[in-house]
Design a protein around this nucleic acid. Structure first.
Lengths: 196, 196
DNA sequence: ATCATTATTTACCATACATTCAAGAGTGAC
DNA sequence: GTCACTCTTGAATGTATGGTAAATAATGAT
């Protein structure tokens, strides 16, 4: 609690926000320490003291991204029906990956789908992060079945995987330049294959 | 035509096949010259003489990948109806991205969705390549409308974008470890939202 | 005031990277 | 057999990379 020693001159969370931006635009392997320290306006030793190393900075950036940029997932999961969950998820995903003043697409996908064997832990970490997100939808759809809101003939895991597949595809399209309006139409079509 | 000078000791196309494999697994930025020359069993100067440089090797690898690994697209486009085109495309895509003895996913996606500014040309190149593939489907669906096979109320560009979105998402899922059976079910669900 | 503690600054380090040079070796033309 | 030509081998080049050491500066505790 007591703040001993010289106080930090920068705000850790604000610096992390800059890191998110760089990793989002350039991916893990495409980002150098110099890119990071320039964007964060801190020195290399400050970065190492605050975040450990490049990998630590990335992991914390992913954490902030999930907390801030993907908070719409919490709202989606709180919807009263499985159908409403899916609608809210896809529609807010489209908005999130096409925000005017931010990088296009999704950090957890452009962060690194593949990489050098030395960076395999990063790829694994991103895969696990996305898997954890998908698992939340599995549980939510199981709950919907338990509540009688969703037919017991449906497979919660398949529905969650379907939505995760669509959002991943939407992120790829967004990063390649597809517009919000175009992706919104794709999302509505994808919803046509979702129960009810 | 005349083969003057010392003959090349390796087969260019076979070497390119090895390069495809490495780029597929590791992406453009995650692949070093050493990774390439090891996999291709040639020396650095041999690679430069045959392919120009790392970027040239990648572009030619993408060319080979499109020609060999994505030939099922030609077959899909040759199907007699728009519906059959979509079915063939998604189903063979699932097979292609989950082949047992090959990297999982799709080279044109894991090759590099994002990257260092110095590698932006690679990212652009991949985006354009995927866009060119998508454009073939736009033309095919327009043809289907012209032939009366597909309702004129449908937008060929939207249908093509929908399929491209799904295949991109499937590739992400495959690279993260989803099984062929799981992805086949996702593909069938996605087809439920395609006309007819 | 002194000290322990933590940040910052500046410079450095070892390695890895893409690319190329220089010398030698295998081929066809004459 | 010599020459022009092209490939291979092995080494080197310059730079960029992630990470760190040492010295200095700012705070709280005593």
């Amino acid at each position: 609690m007591a703040a001993r020693g010289r106080p930090r001159e920068f705000d850790v969370d604000e610096a992390l926000e800059r890191a998110v931006d760089v990793f989002w635009r350039q991916g893990y392997e495409g980002t150098t320490l110099e890119d990071l320290t320039n964007a964060m306006s801190i020195s290399r030793p400050s970065l190492y003291a605050a975040f450990g190393n490049k990998e630590g900075t990335f992991r914390q950036a992913i954490g902030r991204y999930a907390r801030v940029e993907m908070s719409y997932i919490d709202a989606a999961l709180a919807m009263p029906t499985a159908r409403a969950v899916a609608e809210h998820y896809l529609r807010s995903n489209v908005v999130s990956i096409t925000l005017p003043d931010r990088p296009r697409g999704c950090l957890s996908i452009q962060g690194g789908l593949a990489g050098h064997p030395a960076d395999q832990r990063i790829v694994d970490f991103l895969n696990e992060s996305r898997g954890a997100g998908e698992a939340r939808f599995v549980r939510r759809f199981q709950q919907a079945i338990d509540e009688g809101d969703l037919s017991a003939a449906e497979d919660p895991a398949e529905l969650a995987r379907y939505l995760a597949t669509v959002t991943a595809g939407l992120a790829v399209q967004a990063s390649a330049g597809a517009t919000r309006a175009e992706l919104a139409r794709v999302a509505e079509r994808a919803l046509a294959a979702f129960p009810q």
